Simulated scan of single mutants.
Amino acid sequence: MSIRQRFRLGMLTVALLGGWTASATTQLRVDVTQLSQEADAVVHGVVRRVESRWSGDGRRIVTDIEVQVTDPLKGQPGNTVLVTQPGGEVGDIGQTVHGLATFKKDEEVVVFLQKRGATAFRVAGMAQGKFQVRRDEAGKPAMAIPEHSDALLLDPVTRKPTTATEKPRTLEELKATVRAALKKGSTP
């Protein structure tokens, strides 16, 4: 192969690889029982505000998510909780953190939260700690749909790549699982 052909092949490789976005987030897979026991608060509620802003030091973008609590399943979070997570868009500048939960205004959710300072929380287990609640007009039970992300999940025992194990279930089944996990976690 000539130098010119190697150069072209190298440039083609760089061009192809340069077009891919790298998702470098790796995390251990967790289930609802573990999330319930490790979270400081678990709430069922409605997203009232999603707003990105520059952090206090002006070096990164963070997003504030305000959730109006309709059912506090664990903890005493109050009528609303403020969830803050890295990433977002301010003007025409954006920062993405792979593996985090995504939120939309007026979205109904169940979220597993960890304290982050005096008044703010973060989502426990990243995207694994958020379930979207979907309601059907036909009178069927509300469904809790787990959020899946682009993060690489590792089995907590083998540390080998795995897939998410949480499946959609009714909202009441999710709440019952949370309550059972909390009851189980409080017994010696």
Rank of each mutant, 00 (worst) to 15 (best):
M11L: 15
L12N: 04
L12I: 09
T13H: 11
T13P: 01
T13S: 12
T13G: 06
V14Q: 07
V14H: 03
A15C: 10
A15G: 09
L16P: 01
L16Q: 07
L16I: 15
L17K: 10
G18V: 07
G18N: 07
G19W: 11
G19C: 13
W20N: 06
W20I: 07
T21G: 08
A22M: 10
A22V: 15
A22I: 14
A22G: 04
S23H: 15
S23V: 10
S23C: 10
A24G: 15
T25N: 13
T26Q: 12
T26R: 15
Q27P: 02
L28F: 14
L28Y: 12
R29V: 00
R29H: 06
V30W: 04
V30S: 13
V30L: 15
D31Y: 01
V32H: 04
V32C: 04
T33V: 12
T33D: 14
Q34V: 08
L35D: 00
S36P: 08
S36V: 04
Q37R: 14
Q37Y: 04
Q37A: 11
Q37L: 11
Q37F: 06
E38S: 08
E38F: 01
D40T: 02
A41E: 05
V42I: 11
V42R: 02
V43N: 03
G45F: 02
G45M: 02
V46K: 12
V46G: 00
V47E: 05
R48T: 15
R48S: 14
R48F: 05
R49Y: 12
V50G: 00
E51V: 07
S52Q: 07
W54T: 14
W54K: 09
W54R: 10
